[in-house]
Design a binder for these strands. Structure first.
Lengths: 276, 276
DNA sequence: CCTAAAATCTCTTATAATGAGATTATTGCG
DNA sequence: CGCAATAATCTCATTATAAGAGATTTTAGG
């Protein structure tokens, strides 16, 4: 399901083969991928689509699109809105509920989130790492005016912040290097080093400390303190506390760091629970 | 995407036509439906599946199932867990986040939920009605020990409770009757009437009051107070306050009822926002 | 290193997805 | 209420392509 940036659906050359000409933006797409591609279009910038817009955007013909919409509608992934437009449907909500309730990582982390957020005016969150992206999967806020919001589902960038570094620091060399290269600019801008070697040294220190601390890297004025959650000594997620900068002295940071590291360690001990 | 209870995938008779013999449980299923059918299996009782289990359950052959899993994996709907098992993936979380952030009903209701939950020790929630099911889509709890939990995604039955009645009361006769028939037993057991006429009379009173009140119908000891959210005078959701029974005197119930009704009315005024 | 299991690939065949256009259903409006 | 305009579905011939059997490769485990 990869989008090729080189060729818009409509502009590609004509060949005798109608079908393969229609979907040049889907590399090796089968009909399943083409249905799921419909869901790709629903974004925060554009959460509603009319059939005609979908047809135009995806290059599908009318009967085909309506067939797809029928499947998606019947399975609840989309739902009709007034004016003949479509939005994401109840299935999405149900599946997230299920995912939330059946994720052993969340079950293991929740008591720690509650405890930590009760101890400090902060936001305590768990961020899962999916290889290419990071997503907040659970968070509890206790600060009255949280410096920034991290609800479940919020995506996070890999280059900046304590969370990203806490995960990168525990990856095997082979797996860090691509990330170091890819996010070199971000890592440099937050002072993690300007060469690969410097960055690796920074990560090594994080690994030794067992915890990463970041000052205003993601949100100005917010301090992030994150420790990895490991499964078979491999990072799968990160436990993070974000707290307002002005409330927080160096000694307190050290104390919270120790708490976060210990909580993450305990969550990590819950075996058999995390992804591959 | 309906499962036929009469015939397990493996036991159906042999005909010359291999393909249609394989999927007797999917009525008129196309290949899109067969892929989406994989996702149907992930439930709270069984949130993880191995490829072999999926093959056996769905009756798909090995290459076919792996093809499906590849599509679902690449689009993030499932993710591999340790031991070669699969669980729902990050896409589910992302889509719910998007759905949450782009739902105008939630945006319109949130200030009211915050206000109401701040005024009383209760849980304030919004439940969307999807024709066949009801789902909590937003909730805020202020009670220290809430009598029951209503997180987003929690499904609700149509037969019992203030929420269901607040919606049924505002449906046109043609649409209520099937529900009255279907949930006759539930409606009778909560004292809404033992004949269709009695039930309709009860609903009429709810409609006149603009709000439905239920005492311990869903959760013993919990009082539910719900008012419909209308779009073009058609109910699309319900705003509900649940509060512990022992804290709540009759006079307070009347006051909260008025607040809930008024809040629901104001949310309803936000036009152009609700489903079809 | 070797074995066993898991995942993918190859290739043929028959299915069923597709698209053009016709048809039917819905909606809006005078 | 009926008509026009739009939206959604249906029909059916065509052929691309999904499926399956079995071989092959990859991965995991001892």
């Amino acid at each position: 399901m990869q989008l090729s940036p080189f060729c818009s659906p409509r502009e590609c050359g004509n060949t005798a083969n109608t079908r393969s000409r229609i979907y040049p933006h889907l590399v090796k797409a089968n009909s399943q991928d083409r249905v799921l591609a419909v869901l790709d279009l629903f974004t925060e910038a554009r959460p509603q689509w009319s059939p005609d817009e979908l047809m135009k955007e995806l290059g599908y013909t009318r009967p085909t699109l309506y067939r797809y919409l029928k499947s998606l509608k019947e399975s609840g992934f989309v739902m009709p809105m007034r004016g003949g437009r479509f939005a994401l449907g109840p299935r999405v909500v149900e599946m997230d509920y299920l995912s939330r309730r059946s994720d052993p990582l969340i079950a293991a982390a929740t008591p720690h989130l509650e405890r930590l957020s009760a101890m400090h005016p902060c936001t305590a969150l768990v961020v899962r790492w999916y290889g290419e992206k990071m997503l907040c999967v659970a968070s509890i806020a206790s600060a009255v005016n949280p410096v920034s919001s991290y609800p479940r589902g919020r995506p996070m960038a890999m280059g900046r912040g304590a969370i990203a570094r806490s995960i990168m620091a525990f990856l095997p060399r082979q797996r860090v290097m691509p990330l170091v290269t890819r996010y070199a600019a971000d890592l440099r801008s937050v002072g993690a080093g300007s060469t690969p070697d410097e960055i690796l040294a920074t990560l090594k220190r994080v690994r030794r400390a067992g915890v990463a601390v970041a000052f205003g890297e993601v949100t100005p004025g917010a301090i992030g303190i994150a420790a990895p959650i490991l499964d078979a000594s491999y990072p799968v997620a990160s436990l993070c506390i974000t707290i307002a900068g002005q409330d927080t002295k160096g000694e307190l940071i050290d104390r919270i760091s120790a708490e976060v590291r210990e909580a993450a360690r305990q969550i990590s001990l819950t075996t058999d629970n995390n992804p591959e």
